[in-house]
């Protein structure tokens, strides 16, 4: 990452310590884009939102054994206004589809979507009248996670992939 830290005595690019031993506050230089991306990528807050079986694995991922807090995503927010990440964890029915669309619209930018599991990715085993064949029919999906249900490790891999994606975003993630 292109963030440079230093102290006034050492000059902008020469230093390696943000806080020099003499007590001066120090300073950091970075490209705004990268600094913002760095902050965003390390605090992806998911929405407290579960649909079906995958939601239970999502809870397991948040519990002590797997501990999603290691990736800065332990703050599950109940309000879409405060969430960055929508994890669609389960099958999306026709009746639920407009509701999910509305929840996604209520989330403030920047926002990302993980389609967790086969059902959210492509309908899974439920190719029938009731289930929408993949949530990507109505939302832009950033990462797809295969598995029925995916293990918590698979969800972490997806979050890691999403962090990579966020870090590489240009123009502060403004989409035209």
């Amino acid at each position: 990452m292109g963030v440079a830290v230093g102290s006034p005595q050492q000059g902008a690019l020469g230093g390696t310590q943000a806080h020099a031993k003499d007590g001066s506050a120090g300073f950091a230089l970075a490209k705004l884009e990268e600094l913002v991306n760095w902050g965003r990528a390390n605090s992806v807050w998911p929405l407290t939102f579960g649909l079906a079986c995958c939601a239970i694995e999502q809870i397991s991922a948040a519990a002590s054994r797997f501990d999603i807090a290691r990736f800065g995503s332990e703050v599950f927010r109940a309000s879409p206004r405060q969430a960055d990440l929508l994890i669609v964890s389960g099958r999306v029915s026709n009746k639920m589809a407009p509701v999910i669309k509305r929840i996604y619209d209520q989330m403030s930018d920047p926002k990302w979507v993980i389609a967790m599991g086969d059902c959210a990715s492509c309908g899974g085993p439920f190719n029938n009248y009731a289930i929408v064949q993949g949530v990507d029919k109505m939302l832009p999906v950033d990462v797809y996670v295969p598995g029925c249900p995916p293990r918590p490790e698979a969800l972490f891999y997806a979050i890691d992939k999403l962090r990579e994606k966020i870090k590489a975003e240009e123009k502060l993630g403004v989409r035209e």
């Binding site: 026709n94 009746k95 639920m96 589809a97 407009p98 509701v99 509305r102 009248y129 929408v132 064949q133 990507d136 029919k137 109505m138």
Partner: peptide, 20 residues
């Protein structure tokens, strides 16, 4: 390719009306 017109017929299962 999401924008391919070949796939335009898909996703029609989603109800138009607000189910809530």
């Amino acid at each position: 390719d999401r924008n391919n017109p070949r796939f335009a017929h898909l996703g029609k299962q989603i109800m138009a009306g607000p189910s809530f």
